[in-house]
Simulated scan of single mutants.
Amino acid sequence: LSREQSIVKQLCQLFEVPRSSYHYHLKHRGIVNPDYQRLCEQAIEIHSDSRGSAGARTIAGQLNQQGENVGRYKAASLMKYAGLVSTQLRKHRYKIAKSESKIAPNLLKR
């Protein structure tokens, strides 16, 4: 974006972004939070130790055992920031049956 105030105002209106958010982003871009970076490195280490199977809950639990106060959602944001994806398969999900079971008929019509 251009530094001219009128163009910034028009572009912010066009993209429905508050001007204050634009100026905040300009002021804080490139600033790295060292605590967040340290947590991210620990999350990467936990993920690699589990051979890629650790998810957000596992990483949050491990970080809490190490003395960090991290919840599941913060662990998920750390994973997203670091580009980590769990290779663990999801739990079984029941499929909606297309036809009625031959073993047990659906008497309650559920």
Rank of each mutant, 00 (worst) to 15 (best):
L1P: 15
S2T: 15
S2P: 15
S2Q: 15
R3D: 15
S6M: 15
V8F: 07
V8S: 13
K9W: 12
K9D: 10
K9H: 10
K9F: 11
Q10P: 07
C12H: 05
C12I: 04
L14F: 10
V17A: 02
S20N: 00
S21L: 04
S21Y: 01
S21V: 02
S21C: 02
S21K: 00
Y22E: 06
H23G: 01
H25D: 10
L26N: 09
V32K: 01
N33S: 06
N33F: 03
N33E: 09
P34R: 09
Y36A: 10
Y36M: 11
L39E: 02
C40D: 02
E41R: 06
Q42A: 07
A43Q: 00
I44H: 05
I44A: 02
I46A: 07
S48W: 04
D49C: 12
S50H: 12
S50M: 13
S50W: 11
G52N: 05
S53N: 07
A54Q: 01
A54W: 00
R57E: 10
T58D: 04
T58Y: 03
I59R: 00
I59D: 00
I59S: 01
G61L: 10
L63Y: 15
G67N: 08
N69V: 07
G71E: 02
G71F: 00
K74W: 05
A75W: 05
A76E: 06
A76F: 00
S77N: 14
L78V: 03
G83D: 09
G83M: 12
G83K: 10
G83L: 09
L84D: 04
V85Q: 14
S86Q: 08
T87I: 07
T87N: 12
Q88G: 05
Q88E: 11
Q88M: 13
Q88K: 15
R90I: 02
K91A: 03
R93C: 01
R93M: 00
Y94C: 02
Y94M: 08
K95S: 04
K95R: 09
I96E: 00
I96R: 05
A97W: 01
K98L: 10
S99Y: 06
S101N: 13
S101T: 13
S101G: 11
K102I: 14
I103S: 06
A104D: 09
A104K: 12
A104Q: 09
P105F: 10
L107A: 10
L108Y: 14
K109S: 07
R110G: 06
R110K: 05
